[in-house]
């Protein structure tokens, strides 16, 4: 097990640093003294058995929960109480374990909501048929169309997402997160409940996002095969504590991980 020490990492390389974070809900300890970092441009996986605190960790990173102790530094700035919208503005986007889209809206509109933070013109301009608000709308639509093209969901552009199969909904959700042009993308079980083919598609999209846009990605995933293939580095949690951190190869051979997560005969 290797704890990240600040001198081993070049300062500019660390996009996000989690330092000694603990999170308690009353008597329940969701996270205990967890530290790790996410480097710019990498795919970082967070794995662990059920209830290990993975989603709590993501919630802390994007400001939905506030750590009871410890601190989180994003782009060199430490905020003791960052709110989700501040995180979003700062360049952190996420998808959810259970798809959280607007079911009655089309794919296009759902992804368009991801641009909401980037809309500059106010209500007055929006009322006009022409002018800056219209130009802005066109520019955003173009960005959204590029995402639709990228994720190959042209055929469901005008379909209400509630009618879509689960795998496609997940893809639309990724699209909405991408529409924010995030620096850090948090994916909470992007492949949960998918079949093999859908998983392969999603893996390819995640790699393409990372490769083409240079987006840093932190993801939670249960499918250990996917994690090993996708990620550059893996952090392993168990009962709210970090038990391992390293490359997939290192983690795979780590005794504590094998015992805790991959399972051994007890």
């Amino acid at each position: 097990m290797r704890a990240p020490s600040s001198d081993a990492i070049v300062a500019g390389d660390t996009l996000l640093a989690v330092e000694a974070v603990s999170l308690r809900f009353g008597g329940v300890r969701a996270l205990t003294d967890v530290s790790f970092d996410i480097r710019k441009g990498e795919i970082r996986a967070i794995i662990g058995p059920n209830g290990a605190g993975k989603t709590s960790m993501l919630n802390c990173i994007n400001g939905f929960y506030h750590p009871t102790e410890g601190r989180i530094t994003f782009k060199g700035v430490t905020r003791p109480k960052m709110r989700p919208y501040e995180a979003a503005r700062g360049g952190i986007a996420r998808t959810f374990q259970n798809v959280a889209l607007f079911k009655g809206m089309t794919t296009l509109d759902n992804i368009m909501t991801g641009r909401a933070l980037k809309m500059r013109r106010g209500f007055f301009w929006q009322l006009l048929r022409h002018g800056p608000a219209m130009n802005e709308e066109v520019a955003h639509r173009k960005a959204v169309e590029e995402i639709i093209d990228f994720l190959q969901i042209q055929h469901i552009r005008k379909t209400p997402v509630g009618k879509l199969p689960y795998g496609l909904q997940k893809r639309v959700e990724l699209g909405r997160a991408l529409a924010m042009e995030p620096e850090l993308l948090l994916l909470d079980e992007p492949m949960a409940g998918m079949n093999l083919e859908e998983k392969e598609d999603m893996s390819r999209f995640i790699l393409d996002v990372n490769n083409q846009f240079g987006t840093t990605i932190a993801l939670i995933e249960h499918d250990i095969g996917v994690v090993m293939d996708l990620s550059d580095r893996v952090v392993v949690l168990e009962y709210g504590r970090k038990i391992a951190d390293g490359t997939p190869a290192e983690v795979k051979t780590d005794k504590a991980v094998i015992d805790a997560y991959l399972g051994v005969a007890h």
């Binding site: 639509r141 173009k142 169309e145 590029e146 639709i148 093209d149 042209q154 552009r157």
Partner: peptide
């Protein structure tokens, strides 16, 4: 020739 690209 026409091609539908980026929705147009």
């Amino acid at each position: 020739m026409r091609l539908k690209d980026l929705g147009i």
